[in-house]
């Protein structure tokens, strides 16, 4: 429903001091409408700064951020509206839960938007369904939920605002495999059902490979690679050279290729490896 574009964006922490750190250096990129885009990179690659810029929590030192072609800083007084259009789920979002019930907490964002109570009720149910939160949990205190459930409740709280662009910073951090799959599937379900643009920031190549359409790789405050999932993973060697953890299966494919096994580029899931190896064994 919306396209986000960065035009030559730079961001410097502590500018004009000896402690100045350039977090983003002349970054231009486009997050395409209706796609799930993964932003991947090391800590310190600039990806967390990027997240704060996307919904106007920080202002770029130079350059422009365009939401559907319009500079989000054109009218700083209307930043609240921008924040309704670009939803942000921060890292460990369960630390923001505060209401007495899960339902009230999910309602917090929509209520701040001034929606009617009927509309809010509809949105709570819808958001809970996306993240797979059982309805019986909605009347519990958020502090009584398990870690994975808290995370899902917090994500639902932003989904209920129905932002045109949903940005999530490390939505699966610290969760166990089941919790990780549940939340990422929920995000994918939300993207597919609403057609919203979704941005997921992560350092897990395996998760990105499984859930994203497009991938942007950040390194040293710049965009290192970007394109569709297949395009980016075709450069597995380039990824390894910036020290990113490529999926184990991709490493395997590299090793096999080095030993003369003829495999195509861009193997990043077990399924892809299986398809590629199958004909060789026949």
């Amino acid at each position: 429903m919306a396209t986000l574009t960065l035009e030559q964006v730079s961001y410097v922490y502590n500018p004009r001091t000896p402690f100045a750190v350039e977090a983003l250096d002349d970054v231009s990129l486009t997050v395409r409408d209706g796609r799930v885009t993964g932003i991947i990179g090391h800590t310190g690659s600039g990806k967390s700064t990027l997240v704060q810029l996307l919904n106007g929590l920080e202002k770029p030192s130079s350059g422009r951020i365009l939401l559907d072609g319009e500079d989000i800083w054109a009218r700083p007084k209307e930043m609240k509206k921008i924040r309704h259009r670009v939803g942000l789920v921060m890292q460990y979002p369960e630390y923001q839960l505060f209401e007495e019930t899960v339902r009230a907490d999910i309602a917090f964002g929509p209520r701040n938007m001034g929606l009617s109570e009927e509309e809010i009720a509809v949105r709570i149910d819808e958001a809970a369904a996306f993240v797979g939160l059982e309805l019986s949990l909605l009347d519990k205190s958020p502090f009584d939920l398990s870690g994975g459930e808290k995370r899902r409740a917090a994500v639902a709280g932003v989904m209920a605002m129905r932002p045109e662009v949903l940005v999530l910073d490390e939505p699966a951090a610290g969760l166990d495999p089941r919790g990780r799959d549940t939340i990422l599937q929920g995000i994918r379900r939300y993207a597919d059902a609403t057609g919203s643009t979704v941005v997921i920031v992560s350092h897990s190549m395996e998760d990105m490979a499984a859930y994203c359409d497009d991938i942007i790789v950040m390194a040293h405050a710049k965009v290192y690679l970007s394109g569709t999932r297949d395009e980016v993973f075709a450069h597995a060697d380039a990824l390894a050279s910036v020290g990113l953890d490529v999926p184990q299966i991709t490493k395997l494919a590299q090793l096999l290729r080095a030993r003369g096994v003829e495999l195509p580029q861009g193997i990043y899931t077990v399924q892809a490896a299986l398809e590629a190896l199958r004909p060789l064994f026949q």
């Binding site: 704060q52 919904n55 929590l57 609240k80 924040r83 309704h84 939803g87 942000l88 789920v89 921060m90 890292q91 979002p93 630390y95 923001q96 505060f98 917090f108 964002g109 701040n112 938007m113 709280g157 932003v158 605002m161």
Partner: peptide
């Protein structure tokens, strides 16, 4: 971090009178 998270959920800390600002601190 918490302030940023709640800002993203539509809380405005600079708007309204004293009571409204105090209420904005609860989250």
């Amino acid at each position: 971090k918490i302030m940023n998270a709640q800002k993203a959920r539509g809380v405005d800390f600079s708007e309204g009178g004293l009571i409204r600002r105090a209420k904005a601190l609860v989250p």
